[in-house]
Every structure is written in structure tokens, then in C-alpha cells.
């Protein structure tokens, strides 16, 4: 008896995205097929305007492709309803943005709690998980600080904790 093969965490098939810019059509992502295995670290490189953000947006479920498909752990994002994509994004995808994008008026702990509470995690366990992550990243003493009171590195670590909380 053979073990079933687990689907790749991230897979794209002939992924294409075009934008209409005035009279011309811009092909931002053109027929990209890739597979990222569990534990694999992939770096996407390219010059400005080469479609890196567009590719990540489609993989992250923020942008619908013009053609092709994105699969996250076997689930075809292009076949899901908007609400289902949002739910999958909250549960299975974590972003650490270049500018961190912490919610300015929430404390470090609340920023980490935010995605956990979105998926219905009870407050007590969400708080425990967030606290553990912040402690592990050396931010235990800063959990009640607002982003404006954190250094750049601390903000980045809060963003990492937020990406991992679910």
C-alpha cells in the first residue's frame, strides 16, 4: 500500500495576468507554472515592473488571474468564492509586507491577534498563541505598544508573528 502524495503547498498552472492600460494591454504575468514544496524557500527576483507583486498577489488570493490557476494545498483559488478565498487567506497564508503594514491603532499583541480572531479562534487561546509568538520573537515586553512606538526591527517581528499566528 502506497502513501497518497500530499499536494504541493503552492502550485501555479499557466498563470497569466493582463492589465488594460489605456489603449495597450500589459501582460504582467505570462504563463507562469511553478510548484513550491513544503519547507522550501523560494525567492522571486526581477527588475521593477517585471510582475513580482502581481504574481505574489495572485498566489496570495488578492488578485484573480486572467487565466491559469493557483492551488494552495490542492485547493484551486480560482474556483473558490471570494469569501472562501478570504477564509483560506486568513487560515493558510501569511504576508510579511515590505513596509510591515501593521494596523496603526492596534497594539503589537492586537495586530497578532487580528488574523487569529478573524478565523474564529477563541480569545483565550488566540491570546496565548500570540503571547507565545511575541515572547519567542523577543517582544513580550512590547506587546502593548502601538506600532509607532516600535522600532523598524520590532515592527518586522510583529509582522512575522502575525503571519504565523494561524
Amino acid at each position: 500500500m502506497t502513501e497518497p502524495i500530499a499536494p504541493a503547498p503552492v502550485r501555479t498552472v499557466n498563470l497569466t495576468k493582463t492589465f488594460v492600460a489605456g489603449p495597450s494591454v500589459v501582460r504582467a504575468v505570462d504563463d507562469v507554472s511553478l510548484e513550491i514544496a513544503g519547507g522550501e524557500l523560494v525567492l522571486v527576483m526581477g527588475p521593477s515592473g517585471s510582475g513580482k507583486t502581481t504574481l505574489l498577489s495572485m498566489i496570495g488570493g488578492l488578485l484573480r488571474p486572467s487565466s491559469g490557476r493557483v492551488e494552495i494545498e490542492g485547493a484551486d483559488l480560482t474556483a473558490l468564492a471570494e469569501r472562501e478565498v478570504a477564509d483560506l487567506r486568513a487560515r493558510r497564508i501569511g504576508f510579511v509586507f515590505q513596509a510591515f503594514n501593521l494596523l496603526a491603532n492596534l497594539t503589537a499583541e492586537e495586530n497578532v491577534l487580528f488574523p487569529a480572531l478573524l478565523v474564529g479562534t477563541p480569545m483565550r487561546s488566540a491570546r496565548a498563541r500570540a503571547g507565545a509568538l511575541l515572547d519567542r520573537l523577543g517582544l513580550g515586553a512590547r506587546r502593548r505598544f502601538l506600532p509607532r512606538d516600535l522600532s523598524g526591527g520590532e515592527k518586522q517581528r510583529v509582522a512575522v508573528a502575525r503571519a504565523l499566528v494561524n
Partner: peptide
Amino acid sequence: ARELAVAKSLGAPGRS
């Protein structure tokens, strides 16, 4: 708008 977009990227449903 930017913060709402961030919340959306974190998985906040459109209705919320």
C-alpha cells in the same frame, strides 16, 4: 483605504 486593504489581505471578509 490602505488599512482596509491590509485587513483584507489578512483574511478579513468583505462583509466585515
